[in-house]
Design a protein around this nucleic acid. Structure first.
Lengths: 224, 224
DNA sequence: GGAGGACTTGACCGAATCTTGACTTTTTTG
DNA sequence: CAAAAAAGTCAAGATTCGGTCAAGTCCTCC
């Protein structure tokens, strides 16, 4: 689930540059080179908006308000400078940020990532999964079986998290490895066998069940 | 947006009665007739919980603790009576309340409404955190352990503040650094290790506990 | 401008965890 | 039924990570 970012600036060169860079980072990008185009593009329901508020022929403030009225995502302003007056005008309200030109691409990337993370956190601060006495809490990374905590290492929990959020689906080892270790990780997906063993062992010991089922010749699946 | 209320009691008649009444008042209700069911229902992330602590076959205290560890909403206890011993046992902590059986429906409704109002208000500007003798005051930036102040430097307190306002969640050093030093700060997130050491040292010295827990390979988490 | 506390850095060590590869068991298939 | 393929087990070595420390720098308040 890649994030969608809408880039609004009158300079085509700049929007294209940012779009190319962000696509490279794995984001889906949309561009708009004017107020009208920006409003049209809102239909794509972006997760974050990069917005130049100093565009000519455009009242930045009211464009910003119109955007806010229609989508709830964070807005990061691109601007030559922010004066105190701008802040007073209410440009900068909850969840927003600004980057002053000229800026470096790494800076933009970092800010975007941070905002998306923060937004994600507030959107669903408690991620809980329950199944017959087993309680998995993704934000505190804990697993409880009837008042008793079962502790898992990082990799073990990562695997559990992935399987449980996709409970019922079967994943082969390659796919699991990719999901947990990352797309560009190199190494043998055979490690999974070992981690799954450990997970099952701990679960079995505590609950009497194994939860992770082997689909022979295909992969693993989480059973509630 | 309607509030969600989870009703936990072993008597089906009672849960159904309460549910019907509260639905009539405009609440969304969930019911559970046992400890296990209660834990499962937590996934609905209720805004308030009505909990019978005198259910047979259930250790009310630890069930209560489990619930608290996973959701932050107020808990209203339904009980035959609350003894002094119960209070000492820690059943009642900030935001909680109890209603002794037998009770009238109007009483339940009134209490629930009062708690939801209070919770709403305090959630937006919670400035005081308490956990077993430890009292953290965000506005005066002080930490007390049983009438005794423990002093922390700016950075140390900033870290404590962030962790405590997101208690239970795990943050890796990068996120923590970002949250405390700011998005555009440059520097090594390794500093955190040193600050955490100092914080723990002071807390340990004063309270005998460390509060900040390490989740190996992932990050840090504040334990109440 | 100096003293003292706060903040930062980098190196080091031990411990927790991850990975590997050989080996065993189970399942499928010819 | 035997061979092959897939999955599970195990122990040992490799690796990564977090805690600690000492030293250096920065800042602030006299």
């Amino acid at each position: 689930m890649a994030y969608k970012i809408l880039i609004v600036d009158d300079e085509v060169m700049l929007t294209d540059l940012l779009a190319a860079h962000l696509q490279n980072e794995g984001y889906i990008t949309y561009t708009a080179n004017g107020a009208e185009a920006a409003l049209q593009q809102l239909t794509c329901v972006p997760d974050l908006i990069l917005l130049d508020i100093n565009m000519p022929d455009t009242d930045g403030l009211s464009l910003c308000k119109m955007i806010r009225d229609n989508v709830a995502c964070p807005i990061v302003f691109l601007t030559a400078r922010i004066t105190e007056q701008d802040k007073v005008n209410g440009f900068l309200t909850g969840g927003d940020d600004y980057i002053t030109k000229p800026f470096g691409l790494p800076e933009v990337t970092a800010r975007i990532a941070a905002h998306l993370r923060r937004d994600e956190r507030s959107r669903s601060s408690q991620k809980l999964f329950a199944a017959g006495g087993l309680l998995v809490n993704l934000s505190s990374r804990t697993v409880f079986w009837q008042q008793r905590e079962i502790s898992f290492s990082k990799r073990e929990f990562d695997i559990i998290e992935f399987l449980i959020t996709n409970a019922g689906q079967v994943f082969d080892r390659e796919r699991l490895y990719e999901a947990v270790w990352g797309l560009d990780a190199e190494g043998d997906a055979g490690v999974i066998k070992e981690h799954v063993r450990k997970i099952r062992q701990k679960l079995q010991e505590a609950t009497g069940r194994t939860y992770i089922e082997t689909v022979w010749g295909v992969g693993y699946r989480w059973n509630r």
